[in-house]
Design a protein around this nucleic acid. Structure first.
Lengths: 226, 226
DNA sequence: TCCTCCGTGACATCTCCATGACAACCTCCG
DNA sequence: CGGAGGTTGTCATGGAGATGTCACGGAGGA
């Protein structure tokens, strides 16, 4: 099972993350200060670390640097309070792999974690489920429902929605979709993508003519807001 | 976007390389003889050149030498037919940066290209977010806000602002903007840029008629002060 | 075979962009 | 100090390009 370490001093946030991560079937370790966090990274070898920037004893900053200086490559997602810090986290060669700005959406953090694990772990960590409003999409079972109604979705629709969900909140270009969902070689017209998005909207949007979830970013691509 | 020029007279190979490079999100220019190749290197300023040794009009050999003699440092990967030639390419201080021997593996060539780009063009850390005053711009989400109000920005506006932000404090010329934001081929009047700057100011400046953030440097360009 | 799903093209619609004209401005030099 | 020439700010407008939508034909699986 994939093991995630969360280092966070705010008890409420820590609890929330732990619950959510466990609901996603991760094994969760926790620490509330930098020193314990460091020991756990070293001794428990988690597959990924979620690290708050502000911490007692040793800041996330120092912790990240120390870990990297000692040659460990454990993927780290930073929780940063403000935007300016974010740049530094990734920029100053601190060695964090991704970051999320507080206040963050748990859903987004989970998506980032999944993406990062997939990027760094050879074994693909698939996104299992997507939920919003009264819509539930289960990517493992290839099933979807809305309220009590089942929704019939096709393979390409699942693929498209899944990529959007894995990058929840971020813009996904048509090119990305072609590459990830259609794969090498097969490269249909971009018209095709619009059609699949249209049919997705017809199935999961409350008002398909006024999409609130699958948004168009003119000239760029689409993004999923959850 | 990173721009790669491929100079190759064999149509099949050229096509294959173009497809593969585009699949890796490079912008690809092509030429089938040395003379056109030379003009493109000079005028289109690609980030990297893949150069066949045997070419009509001007051989890859001459082309490489000419380019270097004129002081251009564009990284060049040579495609050589036989092993013996390879040594010469690098050895006779022709100025190529790397080479691949035909028949080559596309995967290997792509890896060489990536490595060479990393070596020569350390990519400026992609900027995700920009904040000042009560303005927040998120370049990954293509979202912007000011206080609690969402700001609607277009693709070109995001691109323009992003380049300014990546070089915060430094002057960015109109030429730079055309090259980075508009890309090769499309080259509108510089008037167009003024218009985009104007609409950016209207959206993010407190008093658009007295800009404090996006400043004009008369006769040179614009710069962002944050 | 039948049916589902996918890719494509055509068309309507909408957004965004490029352009040119003119006014305001800056700079440099007389 | 003032004026000329070049540069920039601003606006309105036409049009290019992107997207939404629909219907059709074909491929492949059941």
């Amino acid at each position: 099972m994939t093991r995630v370490l969360v280092v966070e001093d705010d008890a409420a946030i820590l609890r929330g993350l732990k619950d959510n991560l466990e609901a996603e079937s991760y094994e969760v370790l926790t620490a509330t200060d930098g020193e314990v966090g460091y020991e756990l990274i070293r001794d428990a070898a988690p597959d990924l670390v979620v690290l708050d920037l502000m911490l007692p004893k040793m800041s996330g900053y120092e912790l990240c640097k120390k870990v990297r200086d000692e040659g460990m490559t454990t993927p780290i997602v930073m929780l940063t309070a403000r935007g300016e810090e974010a740049d530094q986290v990734l920029g100053l060669d601190l060695g964090a792999d991704d970051y999320v700005t507080k206040p963050f959406s748990v859903r987004e953090l989970l998506a980032r974690i999944r993406a990062l694990l997939r990027r760094t772990n050879p074994e693909p960590t698939a996104l299992d489920e997507l939920r919003f409003d009264d819509v539930i999409v289960d990517f493992r079972r290839y099933e979807a429902s809305r309220g009590n109604e089942k929704i019939k979705m096709t393979r390409k629709e699942f693929g498209t929605l899944r990529l959007l969900a894995e990058r929840a909140g971020l813009v996904v270009t048509r090119h990305d979709l072609l590459k990830e969902v259609w794969g090498h070689g097969h490269e249909p017209t971009t018209r095709t993508i619009d059609n699949h998005v249209a049919s997705l909207r017809a199935k999961i949007e409350k008002d398909p003519s006024q999409p609130k979830r699958i948004l168009t970013v003119h000239g760029v691509g689409y993004k999923l807001d959850v």
